[in-house]
Design a protein around this nucleic acid. Structure first.
Length: 262
DNA sequence: ATGTCACACCGTGTGTGA
């Protein structure tokens, strides 16, 4: 099964690149974040022409998440929102069953700055996400993938200049500890599992030529339940989608494991 | 370089969020 996750930073702006990506990679599931669209404007028809059906949690101008899958194995049993999250209207969580796997697309709050109410809300979001993972693993026993923009760099290897981030969000023990606690419930960071020493940045600031200077962060993750971990085949970032016309500031992460959809 | 991009708003620039 081939899964991709991509923070598209406005689906309206990114549709040409999304269609290009679907045609090139033909993923069995694509999780998107920051779709920034209303439910009414979500481009279901265009995606269906490309062979994909979408389940979306859309709230308008900010955030928004979606799960896409081919028409033969569409996203079903959709759940939107995360029990315990601070503001479900921010539209940061959607789950669907795709080919027998429960897939969640998540856009964790940025947190803006340390010591702010939004940072506290970010930590509470992590707590809610962990509780949901605990419940899903207890219910299903496995077959779970949680993927998206986690807005945390798990280790200094995932940060282009750890010293420059010393007073910043994304790298604090509070954030890293919450990601670690979620993983301890029975999840594995797919890219890191397959590339223990890899520098797999997924986001680069639009400003100051950071992409071309290789100044990025690895903050988009695919977390798979431990039963799937031995079946992981590949995990990589397609940097070509950070280049060319109208790129997102994130590149897609693509993960494959053994066990194909019917 | 405080460096860019995307959004809403009556807007032809400014504030907000990332």
């Amino acid at each position: 099964m081939k899964l991709a996750t991509w923070n598209v930073n406005s689906l309206k702006q990114r549709m040409p690149r999304v269609l290009e990506f679907l045609a090139e990679h033909r993923p069995d599931v694509l999780c998107m974040q920051e779709t920034k669209t209303t439910a009414e404007a979500f481009p279901h028809a265009e995606l269906e022409t490309a062979g994909y059906l979408a389940a979306d949690n859309s709230g308008g101008r900010w955030a928004g998440v979606a799960v896409l899958a081919p028409a033969a194995t569409p996203p079903i049993a959709v759940v939107t929102g995360l029990p315990g999250e601070v503001d479900a209207e921010e539209r940061r969580w959607i789950e669907a069953e795709v080919a027998g796997v429960r897939v969640a697309s998540v856009y964790v709050p940025n947190g803006r700055a340390l010591g702010t109410p939004t940072f506290a809300a970010k930590l509470r979001f992590f707590d809610a996400m962990r509780a949901r993972v605990t419940a899903l693993l207890a219910e299903r026993g496995g077959g779970l993938v949680v993927t998206g923009d986690m807005n945390v760099a798990a280790a200094d290897l995932d940060v282009y200049d750890p010293a420059a981030f010393s007073e910043s969000t994304h790298v604090t023990p509070d954030e890293r500890g919450r990601l670690e606690a979620l993983l301890a419930e029975g999840m594995v960071d797919a890219y890191r599992e397959l590339s223990p020493d890899g520098v797999g940045y997924t986001w680069w600031d639009y400003r100051a030529g950071h992409f071309h200077k290789h100044l990025g962060l690895r903050i988009d993750l695919a977390l798979v339940s431990t039963d799937l971990a031995p079946r992981l085949r590949s995990a990589g970032i397609d940097r070509s989608y950070r280049k060319g016309p109208k790129p997102s500031d994130h590149a897609p992460l693509i993960v494959e494991w053994d066990g194909a959809p019917p």
